[in-house]
Design a protein around this nucleic acid. Structure first.
Lengths: 122, 122
DNA sequence: CCGTACTGATTACAGCTGTAATCGTATCGA
DNA sequence: TCGATACGATTACAGCTGTAATCAGTACGG
């Protein structure tokens, strides 16, 4: 049911999740400069997202306004779960352990997570 | 530099990470039954992984033995980082917070992570 | 010695992706 | 009114992916 969002499409989605509805041109202007896309490329991606029912558009005069149909939270949940399932047997602990082992957690990260978990227990 | 591993290829890699070196047939036999692949499909994927320099093969008579060149740990690190960068601005805390909000952390998960973090601080 | 079976290599082919260019139509400025 | 613009829609096209089938070489059983 949830159509797959490709990498390039995801870039477009981040723009719309941040602010919407937007015209195609507005979206194009907000795409990070590192992805050196033409306006046409952005329009193609908007078209594909429409076809996949991941965004919708409503007419605004001779142009369209685009808005997400899928919530970012849901997308993020799906992607997180997929990764943790695939690589960590579905458990979060090994992910944290893994990052810790590779020294990819700062003392502050650790402190933050501890506070967060404390809150969850209460 | 690190060539991209596709989803189907990843399935093959998990087999080799679990046990290697293996012949193509051994690999095929160990592929989870849920991926209903023919032996040919597995050989194609082995060939692609070879071409990408992600695995190597050594002759063993008229057949080959395949082994990983990339460590699972490194792959996992890359994928984890990519996800966390893309979806959580590079910080782990929001991922944990996110999973917590969606009730995807059991009490035991929380306890385990706390123990883990305690160990890291000491 | 001959066919059969097994192995890797080559080829196939449709669908998805990244990245546009071009086309058709409507609008706006001169 | 006429050409320049701006938009979305259609078309393009190569590379990657998933999923094989077919081919070519060789070793083994009879």
């Amino acid at each position: 049911m949830p159509e797959k969002i490709s990498d390039a499409e995801h870039t477009v989605m981040e723009v719309l999740w941040d602010e919407s509805p937007l015209t195609a041109q507005d979206v194009a202007e907000r795409i990070p400069a590192t992805r050196d896309w033409t306006a046409n490329t952005v329009k193609t991606l908007l078209g594909r997202l429409l076809a996949k029912n991941i965004i919708a558009h409503e007419a605004d005069g001779r142009r369209y306004l685009y808005r997400p149909l899928v919530q970012r939270t849901d997308y993020v949940a799906g992607e997180s779960k997929r990764l943790i399932d695939r690589l960590f047997g579905g458990k979060l602990t090994p992910l944290v352990a893994h990052l810790a082992e590779r020294d990819e957690l700062t003392a502050q990260d650790i402190a933050e997570i501890e506070v967060l978990l404390k809150g969850l227990k209460g």
